[in-house]
Amino acid sequence: MSKPAARSCDGRQLEYYRSLSKAIRLDVLEMTYRKKAGFIGTSFSCADVLAVLYGGFLGREALHPQDPDENTFLLSKGHGASAWYAALANVGYFPRERLSEFNTSGSYLGVHPKRGGLPGVAASSGSLGHGLGLGCGLAQAKRIRGGAGRVCVLLGDGECNEGSVWESAMFAVRFGLSNLIAVVDRNRLQSYGSDQDVLNMGDMAVKFQAFGWNAVELDGHDHRAIHAALANAWAEKERPTALIANTVKGKGCSLFENLVLWHYKWPEEAHYLQARKELEGQ
């Protein structure tokens, strides 16, 4: 069921979000280090958004996208799969031990997520610019069928280079999909260079507003701010909401932060040990 959340969160809730963020990052670190696969920079930058989303809004119940009353999450930036798996495991969708299957031959915990591969993985992704359109169709389906479920789609800011994102942005407003929430992980670092050097997406909240969205900017590592923004988005009755979450790629370990290299690189032992130490101290 769609669960209304209070606009503000108390100290206990904040503490839970913090512990969830830490657990997600530690699990991502283990997966990328041990399995030499995955994308640590992008997974760390969205860890706090995922912690609040699953810890406060989706809970353990976002399992059946075809249920119109259930909330559904879609990871459009599929290269952040390790963070998604870690979030799902840490709120109880499947035993945490299963994370050791990441990038293991024969398993379905792929570098990019596959629909049906794991409980909670509602859609496949890996190619960019697909999730918002899927989210539009799904939000529309839930509404046509009279349900109260929300659809939340996490996109990368680099992903928004894709024209298909903006086709879907127009559709969402035209059909008044107030049950659709797009979170943009605005880490300003793409796979070849900085956003500014590539296309310079500029003020993304203004861009979404110009398309007719209810769009707000926030600190994507501030649990309290993420919670408040999601609560407002959940309560929105007229327009789709875009949350432009300003983040730091690789956030959580000084070695990884803001470096294109860590879009691709897997930690070696020295990186791993330092990252563990920094994360455990948080």
């Binding site: 529309q140 389906a141 879907s168």
Partner: peptide, 26 residues
Amino acid sequence: PDRFYNTGIAEQDLVSVAAGMALGGL
């Protein structure tokens, strides 16, 4: 009328939205 959608001149979105609707049981 409530089961008819014109996505505009946007074939990528047309297909993604259709897939999303199918994901939602339509």
